[in-house]
């Protein structure tokens, strides 16, 4: 199990969020990203449709090849559609990076253990899918190098951040997906 605090490690990995278009998974990662980005409009966070974050990131990356797209998702959300790693690997979008914040638990539903707390290695699955650049981060000293991969390495990039099962930032965000969509598109497309 990880020991890093997500509230410290996620902002350090992402750095300046203005450099990305961001898709966030449910629950914890939605709050990680909203806390970091608001009041910016360069992110879209799921609150349902579990398992869709990585593929939303792929569609966005293909549509915006000159922008760096970052998916920030959790172990539970990614496990629900882990095949999307295979699809990303096949499409090889050079501008897509995926950050999986792995606390080994379903935090939103009472901190039940997820598969990654029981031996499943999502980084090995990403590498097995064929994603060319994969990194697992266990310690603070590894954050800077992993951040450089997320920001600059030719995509697709997959970084697995092993964190403790502590709460994300207590951020109350909008659950109105249509509003979030209009806001994102207006900021990006005018």
């Amino acid at each position: 199990m990880g020991t890093l605090d997500r509230r410290v490690a996620v902002p350090q990995l992402i750095g300046n969020p203005d450099d990305f278009l961001i898709i966030a998974g449910l629950a914890g990662t939605a709050r990680d990203v909203a806390h970091l980005c608001e009041p910016r409009a360069n992110y879209f966070a799921l609150a349902g449709a579990m398992g869709g974050a990585t593929m939303m990131g792929l569609g966005l990356a293909l549509a915006q090849p000159r922008r760096r797209v970052l998916v920030v998702t959790g172990d539970g959300e990614l496990l629900m559609n882990v095949g999307s790693l295979a699809t990303v690997a096949v499409m090889r979008p050079s501008n897509l990076a995926i950050l999986c914040v792995d606390n080994g638990h379903y935090g939103e539903t009472g901190y039940q253990k997820s598969h990654t707390a029981l031996g499943v290695d999502l980084a090995a699955m990403a590498a097995g899918a064929g994603i060319p650049t994969v990194r697992t981060v266990w310690q603070e000293a590894e954050l800077a190098a992993a951040s450089a991969l997320l920001r600059q390495a030719p995509g697709p990039v997959f970084v697995l951040l092993k964190v403790s099962a502590g709460d994300p930032p207590p951020f109350r965000r909008s659950l109105d997906a249509a509003w979030a969509k209009y806001r994102f598109r207006q900021a990006l497309l005018g």
Partner: peptide
């Protein structure tokens, strides 16, 4: 065009939502 093979159909639904955020049609 991008021809995107899926492992399961629901991936395509999320893909097109992301495409729309970026101004593309699918």
């Amino acid at each position: 065009v991008h021809a995107v093979p899926l492992t399961t159909e629901e991936e395509g639904v999320a893909l097109l939502a992301g495409a729309h955020l970026g101004g593309a049609r699918g």
